[in-house]
Structures are given as C-alpha cells and as structure tokens.
Amino acid sequence: MERVEQAKRKKTSNGLTDAAQAYGTSALLILAVLALWQFGIPEGMSSALPKPTLIAVTIWKIAPILWDNVLQTALEALLGFVFGTLAAVLIAIGFVYSRTVARTVYPIAVILRSLPLIALMPFLVSWLGTGIMSKVVLAALTCFFPTLVNMVQGLTSVEPQALELMQTLNANEKQVFWKVRLPYALPFLFTSFKITSSAAVLGAIIGEWLWANVGLGAFIVNAMFNMQGPELWASMMVATALSILAYILAVVGEILIVPWQKNGPKIEVGK
C-alpha cells in the first residue's frame, strides 16, 4: 500500500519521494517500537508501561471523563493565551514608541526571558489560590515573552523605504502604524503563536498538576499517584493531542490571516 503511494509520488516530484522515504523509515521505526512495546515488556513493568492496545482502549473507555478535563484545560490555555498575547502586544507597541517604557521594561524582560517561569507556579498558587486564575496567569506568562520579543522585532523590521514613502505621502502616526508597522509585524506575531499556542496548553497542564481538582494535568497526576498506568498514558496521549491541535490552529491561522511572507506586505496607499 505504502509502496503504491510512494510510486505515485515518484512520478510527481523527486522531493516528495525523498520526504516519503524519510518519513517512511521513521514510521517503520515507530511501528517497530510499538510492536516491541506490545509484546516485549516484562510482566513486572506492565503497570507502568501498559500495552499500546490497552492504552487505546482506555482512551475510548474514559473518554467522557477526559472530555470534561480537556474542556477545563483548553479554557485555561485559551484565556492565558489571549491575555498573555494582548499584554505582550501592547507592551511591544509601548517599547517601540516610548523610550521610557523601553528603558524600564527592557532590562526586566531580558532577565525574565531566561527564567524557568513555570517554576513560579507555587507562588501563583499561594497568591491566587487553586482556582482557574493561577493556571490562566501561568499560561499567560508562558505566552508573554516569545510574543513580546517577536512583536518588537516585527514592529521594528519595517523597511526604511516604506517609512520614507509614508512620510512623502504625509501620513500621520496612526496611518503609519496601521498600514505599515502592523502588517509588517503580523507575520512575526504568527511565528510566535506557533510556539506560544502549545506552550499555553503546557502551562495550563503543569499548573493543574498539583493544585487543581479538574483539568488534564490534575487527572494525569492523580493517575500517577494512584498507580493507574493505562489511565495515565491515556490522559498523556490526549494532552499531547491537545497541544498538537493548538499548534495546528496557529499554523492554520497563519495561512489564513497572513498569507504574505516576511518580505513585507505591499503598501496600499490609503485614502
């Protein structure tokens, strides 16, 4: 079956064949690992490494419970993503237009960027409690810095020629921002979304680990402590799927909203 497909692709393009071969080898390798896992794990380890078929069946069995938890985690991740992105975009605009904001915030941002922010969760819990807020703030924090850095780069990546053109057209500050800076910055923003979308999911999940009753993270850690191997693996798979879904949404958004590339958009002379 795969060979037929490969043969078909061979006719169309050489690059595609190479890709098929590359991923074909990886796929075979993954299948081999799965087979070994299914049949080669000793009895004593089967509670920690349940058979892949058992994991699949478990996902199906506990799907209704998982679904509630997925919704909670997705909500936290989404809220965190929205707030973190909004804050980052606003501060990036402040950076670009005000020297004072840049001067006071930049050194702090440099320090915070290289910190393991997720490690701050116990502080957030002691401050905001074990409700949804602490997870939303953690998710927002994980989104904030990649977006800030990319947005500042995007807003300052405008070609001088474009600005000069706007100047000769006697455009005001507002027009320059909406018609030049923002279109230049949007591709950068979507590049950061590819990182922050799944990072927000991760932030929400880790925030739930020890400090929540609902949510995928809480489910995962409960399963871990209660020695429920299949449930642990099942919820882990669902969590991975959720973060991949978030990434795919970011990619689709990029394709739909910023079809132009980083070379910069065409400048349309406005009225």
Binding site: F95, R103, T104, Y106, T156
Partner: peptide, 20 residues
C-alpha cells in the same frame, strides 16, 4: 515629519546601558 520621528524612536534600546 511624524513618520521620520517614529522611525528614529523605533531604534532598539542598547541593553547594556548602565543608566537603564
């Protein structure tokens, strides 16, 4: 005029400045 200004202001800040 304004466009020129904003371009000047958009120059990134040098991170190592002791005053900052």
């Amino acid at each position: 005029m304004s466009a020129m200004n904003s371009h000047k202001q958009a120059k990134p800040v040098e991170p190592g400045r002791w005053r900052d």
